[in-house]
Amino acid sequence: TRVETATETAWISLVTALHLVLGLSAVLGLLLLRWQFPAHYRRLRHALW
């Protein structure tokens, strides 16, 4: 049971790290898009909202 718990903890930390990385890359990508294509971003936002 001790090994299982350790594996579970490792998986949880791995998944958390993955989610953090994905979230950060998504935010960075959005910022980059907004910085590179302001007109396109505004049009996209206008279409979405």
Score class of each variant (00 low, 15 high):
H46S: 07
L48D: 06
T7Y: 08
A26S: 14
H46V: 07
L20R: 01
L44K: 02
L33Q: 04
R34D: 00
V3Y: 04
G29A: 13
T9K: 10
L20V: 13
W35C: 13
L28K: 04
A6H: 08
V15S: 05
S13W: 11
A10C: 02
V3P: 01
H19W: 05
L44C: 08
L33N: 00
I12S: 10
R34L: 06
Y41N: 02
L14A: 04
L18K: 04
A26Y: 03
H19R: 01
L44V: 11
T5E: 00
L22I: 08
L20Q: 05
G23A: 10
T16H: 03
V3A: 05
L20E: 02
A6P: 08
G23R: 01
I12E: 00
H19D: 00
A10G: 13
G23M: 11
L14P: 04
A10Q: 11
V27R: 03
L31K: 02
V27P: 01
A26V: 09
R2L: 12
L31S: 10
H46G: 09
T9E: 08
A10V: 14
H19Q: 04
V21W: 00
L30H: 05
H40C: 11
S25L: 13
R2W: 09
A47R: 12
A47K: 14
A47V: 08
L28T: 05
R34S: 07
L20A: 14
E4D: 08
L28W: 07
A17H: 01
L14N: 02
R42N: 12
T9R: 12
L24W: 07
T1A: 10
T16I: 12
A17D: 02
P38E: 09
A26Q: 00
T16E: 00
L22A: 14
I12Q: 15
L48R: 04
Y41E: 06
E8I: 03
S13A: 12
R45P: 02
V21P: 01
H19K: 04
R43P: 05
T7E: 09
V21Y: 03
L28A: 03
V15R: 03
R42C: 08
E8K: 05
L44R: 03
H46W: 03
A26T: 13
W35M: 15
L22Y: 00
W49A: 03
S13N: 10
V27E: 03
L30W: 12
G23N: 06
L33M: 11
F37R: 05
Y41K: 03
F37V: 07
L20K: 01
Q36L: 09
A17Y: 00
W35S: 15
T1N: 08
